[in-house]
Design a protein around this nucleic acid. Sequence first.
DNA 1: GTGGTCTAGACCACC
DNA 2: GTGGTCTAGACCACG
Lengths: 122, 122, 122, 122
Amino acid sequence: MSDWKDDAPIYRQVQERVLAMILDGELKPGDALPSVRQLAVDYRINPLTVSRAYQELDEATLVEKRRGLGLYVREGARELLLAQERERFLREEWPALHRRIERLGLTVRDLWPEETARERHH
Amino acid sequence: MSDWKDDAPIYRQVQERVLAMILDGELKPGDALPSVRQLAVDYRINPLTVSRAYQELDEATLVEKRRGLGLYVREGARELLLAQERERFLREEWPALHRRIERLGLTVRDLWPEETARERHH
Amino acid sequence: MSDWKDDAPIYRQVQERVLAMILDGELKPGDALPSVRQLAVDYRINPLTVSRAYQELDEATLVEKRRGLGLYVREGARELLLAQERERFLREEWPALHRRIERLGLTVRDLWPEETARERHH
Amino acid sequence: MSDWKDDAPIYRQVQERVLAMILDGELKPGDALPSVRQLAVDYRINPLTVSRAYQELDEATLVEKRRGLGLYVREGARELLLAQERERFLREEWPALHRRIERLGLTVRDLWPEETARERHH
DNA sequence: GTGGTCTAGACCACC
DNA sequence: GTGGTCTAGACCACG
């Protein structure tokens, strides 16, 4: 388990994994996150790196610290995350992406073959 | 004119702008690229940074150096660029992007309202 | 009842509450402190944490242990506490605080609207 | 220059110093912050520690990064900081502090001898 | 056991 | 030169 892409900082990739687990419902409100040390061992990275990843999750109020116990997923974390990310994606990333896709001459059908096929059956 | 995003290197952002101009047909084969110095002044960045941006365009055979004159867009640059970028995008970026979009609960219709509407009229 | 601030140790926050009760006269000399177990249940924290909080009160001669009975507020506890805390506050905390308040551009009137108003009537 | 209080993390104390410099006008918009490495040498602490301190200043939009150049105080940083801190102080710190001061039997005059004297001359 | 902080030393990309 | 990231190893307070 050390399939890190080199272009993104590891701590951010760790973050992404945790976020994905929350989005996918693998981590539910009240669940404990894997401990800093455990994750560090599992992924064979430095505890500090995990720590940094976790810190931002706390700042984003997705997770709450229980002193001496660990980090726990907050109530409503998934919904908050979904809303935040959705908004950010549509506002910050999609416009440029959309433009780029159009410039490349790609169409919806190239990217979503199944869905557009389904659409056509309407 | 200094709306740089801090997450991408400036030299790459300069590159993107030039590439976009080629894709959009604003720069055609035989046209000269803006001079390093000019671009540096316009964008208020270090000429070295522009140089670096241009260098890679040369290596990708999209432009050619004419000694003492500057850089010129090569014949077939647009087509080459299109093919390259298209392939790279579909292979490297789209899969992850697609997954992310699905996780956010976004659908084709959220992203391409016009196009999917058009589809429905078929 | 679990409105803990995460920046201060819980055991100290428990302590503060007890001290406040003594200062406010809710707990008078001879009164028994709530039992460790009771407090632990009420606040839903570890008895060890309560213990630790109480221990320091004992060391500061504010309460006395009666074996098998529990902890009791000592004679003169309030006066002792008042003098100690007052002195400590003025010496250790106020100078820095004062500086900070001034830097924020806050004045006595922002903080004590009633009292300064009363002053003016003299 | 290593008068660190042991109770607050060093990186936060570094932060405080920089914030104080902004509040006091020693650092004005457009000014560069001391470089991470320089500060580390001056204060004889680890560059990483300085880095952490600076990172939060960036996140609070008090400072902007110029790639390869360093960190610069943003336009309006002082005003933003003042407003933020003032609000936070009055909302989060003052109420508890006020209560504590009253419990200690301290009055405005104990804390602001000069100002209340001036008031009385009204 | 938990997370938080710090150090020393290293390597990276960028300007 | 700048900041950003990572590691290995240490020590702390807290529960």
